[in-house]
Each structure stands twice: as C-alpha cells, then as structure tokens.
Deep mutational scan, measured.
Amino acid sequence: EQLARLKREFNENRYLTERRRQQLSSELGLNEAQIKIWFQNERA
C-alpha cells in the first residue's frame, strides 16, 4: 500500500514540497528522509 501510494504521488508530481512530504510521512508511517530518498531514486 505504501509503495502504491508513493507511485501515485510520483505520477502526479515528480517533486514534493516540504509540506507534502510531511503529510505523506504522517499518512504512511514513514519518516521524511525515507520519502525524500524514494523520490530521488525514482527520478534517477
């Protein structure tokens, strides 16, 4: 579920704002660094 949600977010926007990253962190139970790194890896 977390992965599917991250992929949906990535398809909508390849870059997250700090606020959006905080929201996802709270909703998915991941820390902000994990989300940031995931997005960086997807863009690579």
Score class of each variant (00 low, 15 high):
Q40M: 08
N11V: 08
N41W: 08
Q23A: 11
E18Q: 12
Q2T: 11
L28P: 01
F39H: 01
E27H: 05
L3N: 08
S25E: 05
A4Q: 10
R21K: 12
L24F: 00
L16N: 04
L24S: 03
I37Y: 07
E9D: 02
L24N: 01
E9T: 02
E1N: 08
R19A: 15
F39G: 00
R8I: 11
Q40Y: 06
K36M: 15
R14G: 11
K36E: 15
I37P: 00
T17H: 05
S26K: 15
N13M: 03
I35D: 01
E1K: 06
R43F: 13
R43D: 07
R8T: 10
R5W: 03
E1T: 06
F39D: 04
F39Y: 06
K36A: 15
G29S: 04
L30E: 01
R20T: 09
E9K: 03
E42Q: 11
E18S: 10
E27A: 06
T17E: 06
A33L: 13
L6S: 04
F10A: 02
R43W: 14
Q34P: 00
I35P: 00
L28D: 00
Y15R: 08
K7S: 05
T17C: 11
Q40R: 06
E42R: 03
E27T: 03
R21N: 10
E12A: 07
A44W: 09
N13D: 10
R5M: 07
N31I: 07
N11F: 10
Q22F: 06
R21A: 15
E27C: 08
R21E: 08
A33H: 12
N13P: 03
E1C: 11
S26C: 13
L16I: 11
Q34V: 14
N41D: 09
S25R: 03
G29R: 02
L6P: 00
Q23K: 11
E32G: 05
R14E: 11
I37Q: 14
K7E: 10
F39K: 00
Q34L: 14
R20S: 07
N41A: 10
N41T: 10
N41F: 07
S26R: 15
L3W: 04
Q22E: 09
E27D: 09
E18V: 13
I37C: 14
L3Q: 07
T17V: 04
E32Y: 04
L3T: 09
E12G: 03
L30R: 00
Q22Y: 08
Y15T: 11
E18K: 15
L16F: 03
E18W: 03
L24E: 02
Q23T: 09
Q34R: 04
N11M: 13
E32F: 03
R8Y: 09
L6Q: 02
R14T: 04
L24Q: 00
A44G: 06
R20H: 08
Q22N: 09
Q34H: 09
L28Q: 01
W38S: 03
A4I: 09
A33I: 11
L16C: 06
L30A: 01
L6W: 00
L6N: 02
L6M: 03
L16W: 04
G29L: 04
A44Q: 13
K7G: 06
Q23P: 00
A33N: 13
L3E: 10
E1Y: 04
W38G: 02
W38A: 03
N13K: 05
E27K: 04
L6D: 02
N11I: 11
N11S: 13
R21I: 15
G29I: 02
R20L: 12
E1Q: 08
E9P: 01
R14Q: 14
A44C: 14
A44E: 13
L28T: 12
N31Y: 04
L24T: 00
N31P: 15
K7R: 13
E32I: 09
R21D: 03
L24I: 06
E42F: 10
F10P: 01
R5F: 05
N41C: 14
T17Y: 02
F39Q: 02
F10N: 01
S26T: 14
Q40P: 04
E12W: 06
N13S: 07
R19L: 14
R19P: 11
F10G: 01
S26G: 08
L24D: 03
L16E: 09
E1L: 08
E9L: 07
L30K: 00
W38T: 00
K36T: 15
L28V: 06
N41H: 10
S25T: 04
I35T: 01
E42G: 00
L16M: 05
K36R: 12
N31Q: 10
Q34N: 06
T17L: 02
L28S: 02
F10R: 01
L24G: 01
N41K: 11
Q22V: 13
Q34W: 15
K7V: 11
I35E: 01
N13T: 04
G29Q: 07
Y15M: 08
R8D: 10
A4L: 09
K36Y: 11
Y15H: 13
A44I: 12
L30N: 00
E32D: 07
L3I: 13
L3F: 04
L28R: 00
N11A: 14
T17A: 05
I35V: 08
F10I: 03
Q40A: 12
Y15S: 09
G29P: 00
R20Q: 13
E32K: 04
W38Q: 03
L3G: 02
E42P: 00
R14F: 04
F10K: 01
A4P: 04
Q22T: 10
N41Q: 11
F10W: 06
G29C: 05
R20Y: 08
R14A: 12
Q2H: 11
N13L: 06
R21S: 15
F10M: 02
N41P: 01
Y15E: 12
N31C: 12
A44P: 03
Q23M: 11
E12S: 04
R14D: 09
S26I: 15
F39W: 15
R14S: 13
L16P: 15
N31L: 09
A44R: 11
Q23R: 10
I35G: 00
E1M: 05
K7M: 11
Q22H: 10
R43I: 14
G29H: 05
R19I: 14
L30C: 10
F10L: 02
A33W: 14
L30P: 00
W38K: 02
S26W: 12
L16A: 02
L16S: 01
L28N: 01
